[in-house]
Simulated scan of single mutants.
Amino acid sequence: MCVFNNTIKGLLNSSITQGALASETITFKSSTGEPIQVNDIIFGCGHNNTGVFNDHEMGIIGLGRGPTSLISQISSTFGGNKFSQCLVPFHTDISISSKMSFGQGSEVLGDGVVSTPLVNKDGGPLYFVTLLGVSVEDTRFEISNNSETAPKGNMFIDSGTPPTLLPQQLYDQVFDEVRKQVPMSPITDDPDLGPQLCYRTSTNLEGPIITMHFEGADVQLTPIQTFIPPGAKDGVFCLAFTNTSNENAGIYGNFAQSNFLIGYDLENEVVSFKPTDCTK
C-alpha cells in the first residue's frame, strides 16, 4: 500500500484528494447472472478530499484511457477494451439505477444507432469527439464558419459534468433560438436562477428538439435531456446548457447523455448512441 496525492482537474473545477492506494479482488455480475471475480484491481481510498467532493458521493470510477482506470484494468479479462452505459434521467426515483456493461457484449447495436469517431488527443485519458454544430428544431448553427473545418476533438464526453458546455457564440445562438421557440415567458424575477433560461410550468416543459451534430452522428435531444429542474424549485425547468469561454473545447454533460445507451469502443475508436429508456 502507498500514499497518493492526486489533483483532478477539468474545465469546471479542480479537486484534490489524498489517501491510500491498494489492490483488491472485485466481483462483477456476468450477462448470465454468474459472478466473475477479477484479482488485483488497483483502487484508491481518499481520506482528505477537497473541491467538489461531498459526503453524499461514494466515489469516482475511472473510465478513461489511463493505465490504472477500471476499463484498462479489466479489458483483457472481459474480452475487449469497450464498455457502455445507460444513465437514467435526472430526478428519476432513487430505487432505479443506471446501468453499465463491460467488455464483450457491451457493444451498442441495432436500429437507431449512430456513431462518431473518438479523437485521441496526445494520448490523454479523455474521450474527445468532434462537434460540427447544433440545431434547434430546423434552425442549425455551426460551431465554425465552415463545418468541414471544425476543430477535431473540440468536445469531450464527461459523465461527471451535469450540463453541456458550448463555446460562447454557439451557446448564445442556441439560447436565443430556444427562447424564441418555447411558447412561454421565461423567468426573469428570480435572482437565484441568474442568467439561466428557465420557465415555470405545472407539467413537464414542452421544448424544442435540439440536435447535436457530431461528425457522422446526429444525436436528437428531447426536453427530458435539455430542461432540468434546478434543485428544490418545484415547477421550474431550466435549459441544461451553459457557456464556456474556451472556443476550442466544450463538454457533453450527463444531462444530455441520459436515456441513451452510449457505447465506447476503444479498439475501433468510436462512440455510439442509441435512444433508450434507461429506467427499464
Rank of each mutant, 00 (worst) to 15 (best):
G250Y: 07
T130G: 06
F141I: 13
S76R: 00
H47C: 02
L21I: 14
N268Q: 12
T276H: 04
E137H: 08
S185E: 15
I209Y: 08
L261A: 02
I251S: 04
L197Y: 07
P229Y: 01
K152R: 13
G253C: 06
V113I: 09
L63C: 12
F4D: 13
D218H: 09
M155E: 10
L193D: 10
P167V: 04
L166P: 11
G250L: 05
D176L: 13
E107M: 02
F241C: 03
A240R: 04
G59V: 10
D158F: 00
F227K: 09
G66E: 15
Q85G: 03
A256C: 03
D192Q: 08
S23E: 08
T226G: 03
Q220D: 09
T17H: 05
V38L: 14
Q257M: 08
P208M: 13
E107P: 03
M100K: 02
Q85P: 00
Y264E: 01
T25N: 13
F78P: 06
V114D: 08
Q169M: 08
L132T: 08
G10P: 04
N259T: 00
G33K: 04
R65Q: 08
R65C: 03
S30H: 07
T130V: 08
I8G: 00
T68G: 01
V178P: 13
P89H: 02
S144D: 14
T139R: 15
G235H: 06
V174C: 07
E148I: 10
T188L: 11
I210A: 08
F156Y: 14
V134P: 11
S135H: 10
E24T: 15
V38E: 01
L239T: 04
N5V: 12
E269V: 01
P223H: 04
E247L: 07
L126V: 03
S23F: 12
Y252F: 13
T27H: 05
L193N: 08
P191K: 03
M184N: 14
E148D: 13
T222N: 09
I61E: 14
D192T: 07
Q196R: 13
G110Q: 03
S31G: 10
